[in-house]
């Protein structure tokens, strides 16, 4: 008879009276534990960060020998008769392009991992059985992913920049952190990483397979833009300006060197920031829709 009463009770006890209110921060904690408890996450992020800082500082160090020579003879007459004044670009080595690409790659890999790590293992079914409202899970993943990648990329950019400037400080060609150009470059160097992480997450959610998602996001970030090289046609240049790597270059460009140019039809800063924002929004919206609509 106890069976009968419990049957009746379980029908009426919905929703369970003692159930605590659901909170978004609990989902963030879940995602944080998931990310933090995977060795591969830390391996990818720390290797990318260490390699980036190393490349940047080592680049500045290798500049030093030429720098002394150039500073000793700042004006030269080239064979064709033009006069050339030496200008040191304090960002070129300390926030170098190859290094930021490494960080972008690390970010994209982590972003993809947060999705394919769930889908390729079947873990996603366990996750969604615990949290049936999928939107919250995706939002929590995005929050955790962006926090980790932004903090790490900011530390890397700051260490690279300050370390690089300190090394040339004795030559008085360094840039202060209070300089707006420096600040924009650091912001660009930092924020491109979470943007790439979100793009990686999108590919992970679409493809769901580990290797295929990584290959696809690398091809998208670094291979595809190569098809839009040169500046013969305006539309080609304009397509190139839509990629995050190109936007990063636009923002980190050192305008005070008259001998450097951005090529024909350069993009402006606003355009570059909009490219960052656009990819972030597209990635979030599409990942959200795909994860909600498709069978787990």
């Amino acid at each position: 008879m106890s069976t009968m009463t419990t049957t009746a009770a379980s029908k009426t006890s919905v929703p369970l009276p003692n159930e605590p209110k659901p909170r978004f921060r609990d989902l963030c904690r879940m995602e944080w534990i998931k990310v933090a408890s995977l060795r591969s996450t830390w391996l990818v992020l720390l290797v990318a960060a260490a390699a980036t800082v190393f490349i940047n500082l080592n680049g500045v160090r290798s500049d030093l020998q030429y720098l002394d020579n150039d500073l000793a003879h700042p004006t030269q007459v080239l064979p064709n008769g033009t006069v050339w004044h030496f200008v040191y670009n304090p960002l070129f080595r300390s926030l170098s392009r190859i290094a930021v690409q490494l960080m972008m790659l690390g970010g994209a890999a982590i972003g993809a991992l947060t999705m394919f790590g769930e889908f390729s293992t079947g873990q996603v079914r366990t996750t969604f059985a615990a949290v049936p409202k999928r939107g919250g899970v995706v939002a929590a993943k995005i929050t955790v992913l962006c926090t980790i990648t932004t903090v790490l990329a900011f530390v890397v950019a700051l260490v690279s920049f300050l370390g690089g400037q300190a090394m040339v400080a004795g030559r008085h060609v360094g840039l202060s952190i209070t300089d707006p150009d420096a600040q924009i470059a650091i912001a660009a160097y930092t924020l491109v990483v979470p943007v790439c992480a979100l793009i990686g997450m999108l590919f992970g959610a679409l493809i769901r397979n580990a290797t295929a998602s990584i290959v696809a996001v690398v091809a998208f970030l670094f291979l595809l833009p190569a098809f839009f090289g040169g500046d013969k046609y305006r539309w080609v240049v304009e397509v190139r300006h839509l990629f995050p790597d190109d936007a990063e270059q636009t923002l980190a460009f050192w305008h005070k060197d008259p001998y450097q140019t951005m090529g024909r039809w350069p993009a402006g800063h606003t355009h570059a920031w909009l490219v960052y924002a656009g990819w972030a929004v597209i990635s979030i919206v599409v990942a959200m829709v795909v994860v909600k609509k498709r069978d787990a």
């Binding site: 534990i33 998931k34 995977l38 769930e118 873990q123």
Partner: peptide
């Protein structure tokens, strides 16, 4: 098998 093999059981259950 619907579980990520890279974590410990404790971490897995804690996250849930």
């Amino acid at each position: 098998q619907d579980i990520h093999g890279g974590r410990s059981a404790v971490a897995h259950l804690k996250s849930l």
